[in-house]
Nucleic acid binder design. Sequence first.
DNA 1: ATATACACGGATCCCCTATTTCC
DNA 2: GGAAATAGGGGATCCGTGTA
Length: 818
Amino acid sequence: MITKFIPIDYDYFDFQGRNYAKIIGRDSKGKRVCVIDSCPVFLWAILKHDLKQGRIDKLIEKIKKIKLDIKARKTKVEGVELHEKNYLGKKVKALKIFATNYKDLHDITDQLGMKEIEKRRGYDLGFITHYIIEKKLLPLNWYEISGELLNNSEEFGGIDLGLDVDFCIKLETTKKIKDLKFSPKTLAYDIETDELKIGEGEILMISLVSDDFKKVLTWKKSKNKPSYVEYVEDEAELLEKFVEYVRKISPDFLVGYFSDGFDLPYIKARAEKHNVKLPLGLDESQPRFTRGINLTGKIKGIVHIDILKFIRTAYSQYMRSETLSLNEVAKEFLGDTKKEFKIKHSSKLGEKDWKEYYEYNLHDSVLTCGLFEKFWPDLLEFSKVTQEPVFNVSRNGLSKYMENYILHNLEKFNEIPEKRPGYNEISERKSKGHVEGAFVYEPKPGLYENIAIFDFTSMHTSIIISMNLSKTTLLDKPSKNAHSIETSKGKFYFSKKPGFFPILMKELFEKRTKYKQEYKKNTNPITLARSNAFKVLSASAHGYIGFFGARYYSHETSASILAFVRKFNQEIIHKTEKKGYEVIFGDTDSVAFLMNNHSEKEIKEFLKELNSELPGVMSLELEGFFKRGLWVTTRAGATGAKKKYALSDKKGKIKIRGFETVRRDWCGLSRKMQSKVIKQILKDGDGKKALEYVKEVIKKIKQRKIDMEDLIIRTQLKKPISEYRAISPHVVAAKKMREQNIPISQGNLISYYIAETNGKSKLVRDKVKLPQEKGEYNIKYYLEHQILPAVENIFQVFDVNLKEVIDGKRQDKLSKWF
DNA sequence: ATATACACGGATCCCCTATTTCC
DNA sequence: GGAAATAGGGGATCCGTGTA
């Protein structure tokens, strides 16, 4: 049989001791296809250099005899080949040792303690990754495949029986073809429960939303039933009905929001309680969870996606939302929010509340479905770039993206993969301590006019490429014909012969540029997603090298990259000053300076000149020309504050960095006020109006006219309450919540305000009250700890002492304004 | 475990000394 | 009068959240 095929989900099974990949996908007509395939299983034994052929032959014979009888499975070494390979960029002789089952590679590795063998590698990729590398059947690419149709066949122990697919094919050949249209079938779901702790309460309803399907299943009946609501008798039937609908719709992707951590485990826990089976898998298997801190729910054949996890890794650094709640994320990406509904325990809900609750539940799935559609192009592109299935892509972190990209591209360098670091290796890496980071120029506080800013394009990555930096190009001794750099950890030398890591980064870097252009020329969600995928990947190169869990970790390289970053930035700053410009600030990869009377054209010429002196792919670009810029001192007052500034461009567009305005752990009042003050000052060029405004705010505070909502402070609980050594206000608030049985856990944003109290304690934490708690806000606290710190330094730029304004003292220095 | 370092700034912690309170 | 409690100053540390 010959058919077109797009692989979506990868799984594997053992049959007669061997591994078989089981790949679920679709054909061009949308029929569901299961492909069964196998691939050679092997690991590498790297030989000590200068071994004589005779000794190698003897070693091969010895290895060929290895047999294992473990875990009720008999496997053996099935063959050994000698190959010329590269390992960490160096030529080596290595034995390719074939085995029966991938899971036994570790045990075989343990048998390879012979002294002729230097290192053992390539046994820790996982079967799926290994299979994709070997057979090049890449996720979400289109193929024309041929093979034997397994129709109710007994082969593989009758795998085809009881598998809910249209065809099951034993793969023979594959041929990559041009992309065809593929719109995945998506089903979003969401549950409502009485308790937030997994399995503690009852599941009241489940909503399901697909393209042309909207449903709320519930056993909580009420008088007016919207058409999309379907009643069942009880919770057990609810679960059965849920399974029934999922099986009937049979989506490629079952999507939830935080469903790895809530919805799916909850459903599983309740099903166990009621003794209800959850045969959601295409083979009727139940969802399975991987253990560990972060639960991951897997359903065979249907890709279970927790879209929150993907948004968190791939997108959150570019988002405006301050939390990753469904409401905020949906607002940012879909322009839609959750339905208003105040959740109460079901026993406290009135007859008319239920209709709203159904709607609320349904709409959560609508939003989840919308988010999946919005991020589908991104999932697709990341999956294609890193050549890993969407299930993994949606849950992997940045380091894994980079690592997969590397592993799937090693073959063209004839490289044997490096192993994952073990526990000891990781602790050793951690013990090496931090390397010195980037250079930040101390700004001179003040309000400036006409500012130009340059910054380096993908600075770290372009340095890795241009200076050929990596674990494998690091030389173990000084060399004259090498890139070298002085770091706090010593002077390091890197070969000038391009290593595979910098070459790979160069490919990424070039594609990043190419797809950015493509996106600019042809703007659509796919080009944007592709551009973004390469941007994210390209930007995490240095982070990967410095990450203790990375296969290609290198402390020396990380230190060198950062040393080059400092060097290049300081050189640019120096050259700018030498050219006669006054430098205002610089952070890592940027320099800002006063234009004085120089024209934009002159400055662009200067940029060209700077660029001509940069090596390799490094380049400096114009970030922009700005009309005004504001820099302040630190709270201590002695020095200019770094990483805090505000700019306005010629169109009056404002860019605020680091100020309290952009920090979510300040109350709304200070943030809004500071933002307004900054905007006013950048607009006017002085602080007169802004000061009037601040005085009004102060007056309002004193008169208790401020809305409570604007005084709420929100701080994230980053760890379990018991682990806090310093009991700060938000920890006290969290404790109060716990006492009131309000469910809280690590990662929650804790809201509270500071109230007037009778106690004489001076600790802020003793004045903490929860938003719903009765009390009056603490005037002194808000004036001195929220308002003053937010704007004091700004007015200092104009020689205004705000403390005196607050205290109502006369303002001599202000006389010039009044 | 799940990319890196630098930086700000609030709040508490902790140590010290001076002052107040208690017996 | 002397010991214990309290206040307050100030640096160290913890903690959360930014910038790049």
